[in-house]
């Protein structure tokens, strides 16, 4: 390659008119190189290591300022804000009851495996969220409370816990992706749900299939943002892969913004999945939901259940939960003897 070019170079050198004396200020040239504004001209060093030839990485300070001023401030307000909103919402609207009350007649919604996947994902996610927030917001919030020594222990534990549980999030995310994806494809009718504000605003009923538009959107947020968080997290967790500082800084920004978005929305999800909406938690707890709940929140799926005669009586349901028909509470006290 070089040899092939050589003749041309000689040729062009012959042709080019030379200036008499051409020189740049050597002092400023040197420091321009050192500063590496355009991230070019990396030097070499006898000390082997990623980026060891970089003298000045100007992005580092930018990243630090972003994390300390924007990320932690807005992140903190987002988390605090969503809790405030949810509490306010609960005070104003209370638990949304199922229209016509619960019938006691149930229909199967989730298998054991699906529930195991959901709660495993939720546990791992919440663990990662808490440990991640301790790292991000601990210095302004917890350190003044506990002092450096104690907070250092908390942060060290959080960091190790976060790093160990990170890959588990990816695994449970993939399990969630596989077992729930079929029912989360957007379909006709989902738009009307959106137009009605999901039934949360006003009194109108919002139409939905097995999952309604809101749940589907939550599902895809979890999957897509979750994958971004997982990949950027894995880049951060393995410093020995040979990636440079700039990649780490970008990964951190992507990771923490994604995590904050997902954490914020997850508070809303947890509210709607528990105290916000009567009858919703049953499905994830026992696998069965009340048919009236299905009709109210997932009318198209409810219709299918009616048509295909999938509904079981209160007695059958009680038996499936190992209770004596009619008994309200499980007799665990007797059991444990």
């Amino acid at each position: 390659m070089c040899l092939a070019l050589l003749p041309f170079q000689v040729f062009s050198q012959d042709k080019k008119p030379e200036p008499g004396v051409f020189m740049k200020d050597p002092g400023s040239e040197l420091w321009r190189q050192v500063r590496q504004r355009d991230m070019e001209g990396v030097g070499i060093s006898q000390v082997r290591g990623v980026d060891s030839g970089v003298l000045i990485n100007a992005r580092g300070d930018q990243w630090a300022r972003f994390r300390m001023t924007q990320l932690s401030t807005y992140g903190g307000f987002a988390i605090a804000g969503i809790f405030a909103i949810v509490i306010l919402f609960y005070v104003v609207r209370g638990s949304v009851p199922v229209e016509g009350g619960l019938s006691g007649r149930m229909v199967k919604r989730f298998t054991d495996y699906e529930r195991v996947v959901h709660w495993t994902l939720a546990i791992v996610f919440l663990f990662l969220a808490i440990t991640g927030l301790i790292l991000l917001l601990g210095r302004p919030v917890l350190l003044p409370l506990f002092g450096k020594e104690v907070f250092s222990l908390m942060a060290s534990a959080s960091k190790e816990g976060h790093n160990l549980f990170g890959p588990l999030f990816l695994v449970s995310l993939i399990m969630m992706l596989i077992s729930f994806v079929r029912r989360n494809i957007y379909e006709k009718g989902d738009m009307t749900w959106l137009l009605k504000g999901g039934g949360l605003i006003g009194d109108g009923h919002a139409s939905g299939g097995f999952f309604n538009m809101g749940e589907k959107t939550w599902y895809w947020m979890v999957i897509l943002i979750g994958l971004v968080i997982a990949v950027s997290g894995l880049i951060l967790v393995s410093p020995s892969l040979g990636q440079g500082r700039v990649i780490m800084e970008l990964s951190h920004i992507v990771h923490s913004i994604g995590a904050l978005v997902l954490m914020t929305v997850s508070v809303g999800h947890m509210y709607l999945g528990s105290i916000g909406s009567e009858g919703a938690l049953e499905g994830m707890k026992t696998g069965y939901v009340d048919i009236n709940w299905a009709d109210a929140h997932h009318d198209r799926w409810g219709k299918v259940c009616h048509e295909q005669d999938l509904i079981i009586s209160a007695e059958e349901y009680a038996r499936s939960q190992g209770q004596k028909p009619g008994a309200d509470k499980m007799e665990t006290a007797e059991q444990s003897k």
């Binding site: 054991d112 529930r115 195991v116 709660w119 495993t120 546990i123 791992v124 160990l164 549980f165 890959p167 588990l168 695994v171 449970s172 994830m284 707890k285 026992t286 696998g287 499936s320 939960q321 190992g322 499980m330 665990t332 059991q335």
Partner: peptide, 23 residues
């Protein structure tokens, strides 16, 4: 330890969500 953690979490969750196991 990741295998152990994931296994234990899933076992315990199943214990809670499976009616027979819970009983």
């Amino acid at each position: 330890s990741q295998l152990a953690f994931l296994g234990l979490i899933m076992l315990w969750v199943r214990r809670m969500v499976n009616p027979v196991s819970r009983l």
